[in-house]
Write a protein that binds this DNA or RNA. Structure first.
Length: 247
DNA sequence: GTTGAGCGTT
């Protein structure tokens, strides 16, 4: 396989997804491919990006064809320094559909590792050992605490009075718990078409009655500036050549 | 332009 991430999940019939955390925000699938491919057959690599900025979130998903290979990669690449940062490789806990992995799929199905002390406990919880080392002494302050966001919000308001509901709302959805709730709610809505509207059609207008130019859909300039190729997800640099080549 | 807990797309 040359390129991944063509148009969604290729085929997850018996593939094992590995979650790579702590990767730099600049690390791309192309950088992870050679690393993971060396330890096994990588079926696909996907790096979730942010909808707003489009930047990597700091973690990636590597799909292996075989569990033993995935386990090997986890043991070999877990803790390795990539791009100046030690990445964390572990088996994905949830599936692509925000659903828990079924048993016998990704959890632990390595009869070979039985000899190891890691028979059934691939990992205590998270990187407790890492914390012990003092990797995260700064507490679990998230990426952007309220501090930064507060400043960002103010600054934003000064610029274009961007709807602040966008920032907190978007990040609020990060919790998968809300997904479940949302989904369930959606189903309920189907049941009763005459469901009470919970959200106003134009909440931002109420929030910003002063002036909210809808023309600025979403900083078209920024988007234009973002020369992020559409295959940013794919790790096929050759495609770019083909596309760049003259007719 | 930055950031650092976590779990994913056409």
């Amino acid at each position: 396989m040359s390129h991944f991430g063509r148009t969604g999940p290729p085929d997850i019939r018996d593939t094992f997804s590995l979650l790579v955390l702590n990767i730099t925000f600049r690390t791309t699938a192309d950088d992870l491919f050679p690393l993971f491919d060396k330890y096994g057959k990588v079926v696909d690599i996907f790096i979730p990006r942010d909808r707003r900025t489009g930047e990597s979130r700091g973690f990636a998903f590597v799909r292996y064809k075989y569990a033993d290979e995935a386990q090997k990669a986890v043991e070999k690449l877990d803790g390795r320094t990539v791009d100046g940062r030690d990445i964390i490789v572990q088996f994905a806990k949830y599936g692509p559909n925000a659903e828990p992995i079924k048993k016998g799929r990704i959890m632990e199905v390595f009869p070979k590792t039985e000899g190891r002390s890691r028979s059934r406990s691939p990992r205590p919880r998270y990187r407790d050992d890492y914390r012990d080392r003092g990797y995260r002494q700064r507490s679990r302050s998230r990426s952007r605490g309220r501090y930064d966001w507060d400043r960002y919000r103010e600054r934003d308001r000064h610029r274009r009075s961007r709807s602040r509901s966008l920032s907190p709302d978007y990040y609020r959805g990060r919790g998968r718990g809300r997904y479940d709730d949302d989904r369930r709610r959606s189903r309920s809505r189907s049941f009763g078409s005459a469901s009470p509207v919970r959200r106003s059609p134009s909440p931002r207008r109420s929030l910003s009655p002063r002036r909210t130019p809808p023309s600025r859909d979403e900083s078209p300039e920024k988007r234009s500036h973002a020369h992020r190729s559409p295959y940013s997800q794919s790790i096929s640099p050759r495609d770019r050549d083909v596309d760049s080549r003259s007719p």
